[in-house]
Amino acid sequence: MPSLADLQAGMRHAVTSGDATALGTVLVGGRRAQGRLAIHQRHYEASLVTALLDRFPATGWLIGSALTMLVARAFVRAHPPVRPCIAEYGAEFPTVLAAHDPGATPPYLQQFAELEWHVGQVSIATSQPPLVWSQFVCVGAEVLLGVRLTLQPGLRYVHATWAIDDLMKIYLTGSAPDLFTLADGDTWIEIRGARGEVRFTRLDPATFLFRTALLVGLPLGDAAERALARDERFDAAQALIALVADDLVTAITPEAGVEA
């Protein structure tokens, strides 16, 4: 009699691959119980493929639902979710999708699908009350460079080599023109969203690097250095003022051991 661990390993293989031979004759139910495992296999695949198609509708619009579904099926077999919240499933799908048949799909497919992933994530975010400038004034100038800023949860920064935000706007507004030429070239995109709303803003590269560094938790001084390394004309004070004016900062954390 197989152990519970062996049974579960066999069922996992059957559910993700459709091959139930490892379970031999241990199953009961109907005359040929292995056939009924197809119900679980089908549910696993259908529920996750549906989740992916729901998460990447714009990508399906771009390359067609047949190809999206084909790759989604392969993806769910090879990459089962690792968490039970299915809203968190699919971050790696753009990479797999773009690698499927690179010659037959647009060169910007991965970037566009990744943008869509971020759009989905920020659209279900909430927004927090922003800090106002007077709350910065009480931070001493000598410690200001060491503070870390918490930015709005519905913020993402995407560097693309195509103007994929323009394409996404066409999808989101349903306003496809008769002819559209997608521009290539570095594009620095800020995506801000909350409660179903999404907005794109193009940034200059230095501001993009500054805000990205703050979002990942670097101190203000380090974020400014990154921006200055990109563009020596970067004005950190103005960038900070703009960040606050855009209602993007929600908390200030002083450097450990230093009183703000």
């Binding site: 559910v15 690792v82 039970p84």
Partner: peptide, 17 residues
């Protein structure tokens, strides 16, 4: 039921002996 195996979440309610 069970639904996790070696870090994978199988998104179904699978049967037990």
């Amino acid at each position: 039921a069970w639904s996790t195996h070696e870090g994978a979440y199988l998104n179904d309610l699978l049967p037990l002996p």
